[in-house]
Structure formats: C-alpha cells, structure tokens
Amino acid sequence: MTMTDTAAKRPAYIREVTDDGNYGTVEKPLTIWERAYRIEALRKAVLLVILAAAWQAYALSLNNSLLFPTFTETIEALWTNVTTLGLLGKVWMSISVLARGYLIGLFLAATLTVLAMNTRIGRDLLEILTSMFNPLPAIALLPLALLWFGLGNQSLIFVLVHSVLWPVALNTLAGFLAVSNTLRMVGRNYGLSSLRLVVKILIPAALPSILAGLKIGWAFAWRTLIAAELVFGASSGSGGLGWFVFERKNDLDIPGVFAGLLAVILIGLFVEYVIFRRLEQRTVVRWGMQH
C-alpha cells in the first residue's frame, strides 16, 4: 500500500469556525477565601498575629516576666516608654546616625563602582577591597574607630560606612556586569558614552541587584548600629536605641528590654515592607524585571 492510497481514503476538508459561544465555563469567580489567600499583606498579617499569640501563650505558661515578659506586657512597656521616657527620641537618634552612615556609604560605593566600570584597574581595586573588607565584621573595627575618632557619632558613622559600602558595591558591580551586551550596544548605538551609559542604561538595567544591595546594606548597617550601641553604649554620649536596651537591662526592666527589641523589629518591618517593597513595586516589578 502506498502513501497516496491511504491519503485517498481520508478526504481533506475545510471548516468555518463558528462562534456560538457554547464553550461551557470559561471564567468562574473565585470564592472569598481563595481571593483573600491571594493577598500577600493579609497572609503575612495573619502570620504575625499567630506569632504574637504563640509568644503570649508561651510567656503566660512560663509566668516569669523577669525572664520572658508576655506580648501584652511588652506592648505596655513600649507604650509607656514612648509616651513618658522619650523612646522616640532615642529611635530618632539612632536613625539619624544610621542615615548619615548609610548615605556616605552609598556615595562611596557609587564612586568605586563607576570607577570599576570604566577602568580595568578600578575593577581590580574594587574586587580586592570587597574580598578583603566585606567579611570583616564592622563591630570589630569599633575599638579602632574609638581610638581614631573618639567617643561619639563619628566612630559610629565610620563603622556604619564600612558595613554599608562593601555589600552595596559588590551587588552593584555584579548587577552592572550582568547587564546584557545587547543593551550596552544599544546604548552605544545612540552615541552614549561612559558616564551617560552608566546613568541611562546600566543603572536601570542593574536595578534589581542594586536594590538587593541597598537592602542588604540597610540590614547590615542597622545591625551594626544596634550592636555598637549595645557593646559600647555607655560611651556613646546621649545614646540611641541600642543604648536604651542596654540601660533597661541594667535596671532589670526586662519588659523594657523587650520593648526596645520590638522597636528594632518594627522599624525593620517598616523599612522592608513600606519603603523597599514599594520601591520595588514601582520599578523592577512594574518593568517585569522581578516577580
């Protein structure tokens, strides 16, 4: 039997595609639970409530507020510290020092990376410096900083810059190097040269990595600051949030210690979800560069 024989048994045909709309269910609304489950903020809020409830239950069963105060006691302590003991002032003190260190760190990181993108030796320098200093804990530099800059904010800013500079520079450089060659060629095709190419093409194209670097830098800086204030708190003049925790512990005011730590956590949540998340939604998520 040949091919043409079989083909002859099955006649070809052409159909009109009719649109009578009888496809059955094409779309079906989700139930209220399915819809609620899709809201990230709601899921996370529920998790936070569960965590707080677990804390409360454990602390109640332990029944020793000197070791482990309950959630409600902590909230109470937080409230009285905010209203009467000027906790907000201490928070502000910490954040203003942090902001200065963070911004100086970002500026230095930007300078180093631009240099690294434009010259071979600059890139070698940045790679050597980051591999030397990135693993070095900023806190380990604090004794030296105190020796060089004395007691006070300058020493704190010095260690903050150290904790921000290397991770941000490392991430930014990695982001720049990952930008596709095609995009660079597109930029050069329009006559963009070194600095304009960095600003107009490389920075937006590397924004996912840059934002990741900013987040890591922020977390490192915040940790370093609280730890520095805790360890050398007594010497840092008027004192910030870490110093507050140190003081509360000295007074054996453990709910106060917890209130201070809770404040650290709340600020962390705020920065992550309100500032960074919003920034991501407006940029890299909107552009389809991150999901």
């Binding site: 596709s180 995009l183 060629m185 597109v186 095709n189 006559g191 194209a205 940029t283 552009w287």
Partner: peptide, 20 residues
C-alpha cells in the same frame, strides 16, 4: 570609527528593548 545613530542596529535578542 565608532557606533553612531547614522547606523542603527536591530539585534536578534529580544532584550534589546529597555525593559524600564
């Protein structure tokens, strides 16, 4: 001598558009 807007390239890669 160098790239310029008098010769515009169209590449094979889809990522030649600026995603932002």
């Amino acid at each position: 001598r160098r790239p310029g807007p008098d010769r515009i390239m169209v590449f094979q890669e889809f990522d030649q558009l600026l995603p932002w």
